[in-house]
Amino acid sequence: MAQWLDTISTHWFWLSLGLVLGVAEMVAPGFFLMWLGLAALIVGGLDYFLPITVAYQVAMFATLSVLTVFAGKKFLHDNPIETEDAKLNDRGARLTGEIVTVVEAITNGHGRVKVGDSVWSARGVDAATGSRVRVTGADGAVLLVEGGLD
């Protein structure tokens, strides 16, 4: 195999790879690299205690990678992360009830409103620029508004 493998114990390679993949998961979270890191740590641990050839280590890593990814997916599917806030990742729904300012007149049912420091597309009754409207809901990235607050 490669000459660099002759200079180090292969279990240190696998343990280091597992740690690097764990750190990479923390830097760029995607909930995928941690399972590969776990597979590398398992191979490193087994290689420390058992005399395993490099070819078998690579095959074991590939097999364990697939198994740990699917086990992690099953675990998350069976134990979903729940929240008390049903609108946690739905910004449009979180804005329902807010009073916003029209920055581009709503004519023929379409215009733009200012929400905080951003501007959203809006749909609703006609309203002049500068008037205040209430958000009644959202349709994707378009806020549904009703007028008559001025």
Rank of each mutant, 00 (worst) to 15 (best):
G37Y: 00
W12T: 10
A122D: 05
W35V: 01
R123D: 02
I8F: 07
R94W: 02
G147M: 07
I81Q: 09
G147D: 06
D126L: 03
Q3N: 10
G30K: 02
L67W: 00
Q3Y: 09
M34C: 13
A39N: 11
D78K: 09
V20I: 15
T107D: 12
A127H: 03
T96M: 09
G130C: 05
T10E: 09
V113A: 11
G72K: 03
A105Y: 00
H110N: 08
S118C: 05
A93G: 06
N79M: 05
G111K: 13
D150L: 14
K74V: 13
V125P: 09
G111R: 08
L143I: 04
V54W: 15
V58P: 02
D139M: 10
V27P: 00
S118K: 09
L19I: 13
V20A: 11
N108G: 10
L144R: 15
L67D: 04
G116P: 00
S118G: 04
G92R: 02
A62N: 01
M26S: 13
A127V: 06
S65A: 13
A71Q: 04
S121T: 05
V142R: 15
G147E: 00
R94S: 15
E146D: 15
L95Q: 12
V115R: 01
L17A: 09
V133W: 00
G116C: 04
G18I: 00
M26G: 07
S131V: 06
W4L: 13
A40Q: 00
W14Y: 09
M1E: 12
D150C: 14
M34G: 10
V119L: 04
F49E: 13
V102R: 03
A2C: 03
G109P: 08
V133F: 02
T83Y: 06
L41P: 00
D117Y: 06
E25A: 10
A40G: 04
V125N: 14
V145G: 07
T63V: 15
T136N: 10
R123T: 05
L76C: 10
G92C: 08
H110S: 06
M1H: 14
T101D: 09
W14K: 02
G44K: 08
S131F: 04
T7P: 00
L50T: 12
T10D: 07
D85W: 03
M60A: 12
G124Q: 12
L5Q: 08
S9T: 03
E146Q: 15
R134I: 14
A39E: 12
I8N: 03
E146Y: 05
L17H: 06
P29Y: 05
D6V: 13
Q57Y: 11
L41C: 14
V20P: 07
R112I: 00
K74I: 15
G137T: 07
S16L: 14
N108V: 04
F32M: 14
V66T: 10
G148A: 05
P51R: 14
G130A: 09
A40I: 00
I81H: 08
L36N: 00
S9P: 04
R94V: 04
A128L: 14
K73Q: 09
M60R: 01
A141E: 09
L5T: 05
I106H: 14
L38F: 14
I99C: 08
V54N: 10
D78F: 01
A62D: 03
